[in-house]
Design a binder for these strands. Structure first.
Length: 690
DNA sequence: GCGATCAGAT
DNA sequence: CACATCTGATCGC
């Protein structure tokens, strides 16, 4: 649960996700997503009164969040004061102090957070530097690297501070199975049950929260069966979700709720009251989505656990794992990091101890030159190889932006995407709030930790390095040889894949296998096959052992046959466009990266960010005369559909922003060349009718 | 009667 | 197995 108090050090006049106490004085409010713990004070009488007395205070959020919020009558009073901002559209906002008239400009960009429908991260750029507030997020390894608007001039932006979702920032949550793996496991479990007869139904025992829609829509799509829910009016304007839901109780998939649901279920009754269909009694199983995690030394486990005769727990997480959080932060590499959440059983100090080494401030004190002759098992690998940093899931903290050629700053996922990669249509992704990576091959991204250092205290003693070194080193040496055969194995031979072949896959697969939950069948004999009277489905499901959660490490889940169908769904999801890499001619790439002036401008970007114009986001970061042609190109691209030139990053145009005319462009360029401020028009009117 | 806060439960 | 939310008790305005 968020412990963020609402204000950021750099921009204390705005409040995010908190609306009480000090935040009552804010000049503008931001809501990252529609979960109650991020809405504290949002409907309090004190804030309502302030709103009534004010002319200008507004709440900014994504279009989906606005929709969800206003569906609740208790928040209707915000209606005239909510301004939705499109995802990935840099937008300038004037922060006005109504008493003094004092004014500050800030540019905000919403980035998809993958936490629940409408969830976003906020990237703020202004006089006090660029800061990122993540809200709650679930982003897979390498997803930050794919976010164009986190980049500038071919590198990640110069970010002063990150306010980070640290819900699972504890080594014990080292890995959480990917969205795709979890979905695949649930899909197969549901399939194994509902295909038995029309009287076999599943109940998804979900907590009351936005975030499961991803699950519902995929289930519905897969089986052509709508999911029964209590309410769906909040999705009335989101057809991609709405079409997969129903209030008709006559369906085989239920996500309805009732205070006595557990009791009902005990008597074979669904929360909606259904017990039979055409007088024939229903056979019901319950599936409870819950977060399962795997510590760094856990070898393998499954995404579905059987907890009773007809009860299952299925892995599902709205939040990034420890590895994912570290990957995210080390990629961004800010100067400061502030945890938004203190995970249960840990402390603020411990979280900071883990995160600080991933920030620039601590890295600047690291030695720039590593003495030669270190043994392979040495702990610190900071400057061993720049490639390693990016090629593996736990990059060693390094100020990549100042050293590494462009290609190397990209996460390997970008390349993987080029090969296979599927994703949903743009519209669907936006409206559900997910930016899916659809990593078709999650195993590739994990390191072998069998030989890793121990967790817990030891981890904390050497927060920046420790266990990953050894894995990363061996991994790296083999990678080039292994990558291609792996793809062969998984996409050509997956119908005949055997457990042994999986186990014997070298290097990166092995590395992933140890950490990655297996939905493959396994020959280790420890998997439990369901054979009880009412559930003899084909899936291998682990029974919840008496030893508790962490001891399920060697049980296994779904058969390879079932894994297949999972892969097929991954392959059918459309195509992802790895724009970041594809669109950049090599020469430009080189220029972007190696030009010393560019580095200079990047170093200075903290100040220059302040001058940013709304629709030309990055223009001021490219300040030297030498770059003007490129700026022109970017400008054209961002504001004009008929642009013929490609861009390394497409900057979406701000709605209602006007295309600069030739004269104005000239003016802009001159200002840029001389480093002067750019005066931009404010778009007051455009906000009022959003 | 409402809200804030906490404990407890799912 | 740890998310997000609801319920109920208690206290204060």
């Amino acid at each position: 649960m968020s412990c963020f108090q609402g204000q950021m050090a750099e921009y204390p006049t705005i409040s995010i996700d908190r609306f009480d106490r000090e935040n009552l004085k804010a000049r503008a409010y931001f809501l990252s997503h529609c979960h109650k713990d991020h809405m504290k004070g949002l409907r309090a009488p004190t804030l309502k009164r302030r709103l009534e007395c004010s002319l200008k205070v507004c709440l900014y959020c994504s279009p989906v969040t606005k929709e969800l919020l206003l569906t609740n009558p208790r928040y209707r009073f915000w209606e005239k004061r909510i301004i939705s901002i499109e995802i990935e559209t840099p937008t300038q906002i004037s922060l006005v102090d109504e008493a003094s008239g004092e004014k500050e400009e800030i540019v905000v960009t919403l980035l998809p957070a993958g936490h629940c429908p409408g969830s976003v991260m906020f990237l703020f750029q202004g006089n006090n530097g660029t800061v990122l507030y993540t809200g709650d997020f679930r982003l897979a390894q390498g997803e930050a690297a794919r976010m164009e608007l986190l980049h500038s001039g071919g590198r990640v932006k110069d970010i002063q501070s990150v306010y980070l979702d640290t819900t699972f920032c504890d080594p014990k949550f080292y890995q959480i199975p990917s969205r795709e793996e979890c979905l695949s496991g649930i899909l197969e479990l549901v399939r194994s049950w509902i295909t038995r007869s029309p009287y076999h139904v599943v109940w998804l025992n979900c907590k009351a929260a936005y975030g499961y829609e991803y699950l519902f829509t995929h289930l519905s799509e897969e089986f052509g069966i709508q999911v029964h829910v209590d309410k769906l009016d909040m999705f009335r304007n989101m057809p991609d979700i709405l079409h997969h839901l129903t209030t008709d109780r006559n369906t085989q998939i239920h996500a309805c709720r009732h205070p006595k649901a557990e009791e009902y279920f005990h008597w074979n009754k669904l929360p909606c009251g259904n017990i039979s269909k055409n007088t024939i009694p229903l056979h019901t199983i319950s599936i409870k989505p819950s977060t399962m995690w795997f510590g760094e030394r856990t070898r393998k486990t499954n995404v579905i656990v059987r907890t009773g005769e007809s009860s299952y727990r299925a892995c599902f997480s709205f939040h990034s794992s420890y590895s994912e959080v570290k990957d995210f932060l080390s990629y961004i590499c800010p100067v400061n990091v502030y945890p938004n959440v203190i995970p249960i059983g840990t402390t603020m100090d411990k979280v900071v101890e883990i995160l600080k080494p991933l920030c620039r401030s601590s890295q600047s004190t690291e030695p720039k030159y590593k003495p030669l002759g270190k043994l392979k098992r040495a702990r610190k690998t900071h400057l061993d190889s720049e490639e390693e940093d990016d090629l593996f899931d736990d990059p060693v903290p390094l100020p990549l932006r100042h050293k590494v050629p462009y290609q190397l700053t990209l996460h390997p996922d970008v390349y993987l995407m080029t090969a296979a990669s599927p994703s949903k249509p743009e519209q669907e992704r936006q409206s559900t709030g997910y930016k899916e990576s659809m990593h078709p091959f999650p195993l590739a991204n994990f390191i072998e930790c069998e030989e890793s250092n121990s967790e817990g205290e030891e981890e904390l003693q050497t927060p920046a390095s420790s266990q990953e070194d050894l894995g990363a080193l061996t991994h790296h040496q083999q990678k080039a040889d292994v990558e291609v055969p792996q793809w062969e194995v998984f996409f050509k031979r997956n119908d005949e894949i055997t457990d042994d072949s999986l186990e014997n896959l070298p290097s990166s697969t092995e590395a992933g296998g140890s950490q990655s939950p297996k939905i493959f069948s396994d020959s280790d004999g420890e998997s439990t096959h369901i054979s009880s009277q009412n559930s003899s489905q084909s899936t291998h499901i682990s029974e919840q052992g008496s030893q508790g959660w962490d001891s399920q490490s060697d049980t296994v889940l779904l058969s390879s046959q079932e894994r297949n169908s999972g892969d097929i769904t991954f392959l059918n999801k459309g195509s992802y466009r790895p724009r970041i890499k594809e669109n950049i001619p090599a020469s430009q790439m080189e220029q972007n990266v190696l030009c010393p002036k560019d580095t200079y401008s990047d170093l200075k970007s903290r100040n220059q960010d302040a001058n940013m114009a709304p629709s030309v986001g990055e223009i001021t970061t490219l300040s030297s005369g030498k770059h003007i042609p490129q700026e022109k190109r970017l400008l054209n691209f961002s504001t004009n559909a008929d642009s013929q030139s490609s861009s390394d990053f497409e900057i979406p145009s701000t709605p209602e922003a006007e295309l600069p005319k030739g004269e104005h462009l000239q003016y802009l360029y001159e200002k840029l060349a001389t480093g002067e401020n750019i005066v931009t028009e404010k778009r007051k009117s455009s906000f009022s009718d959003t």
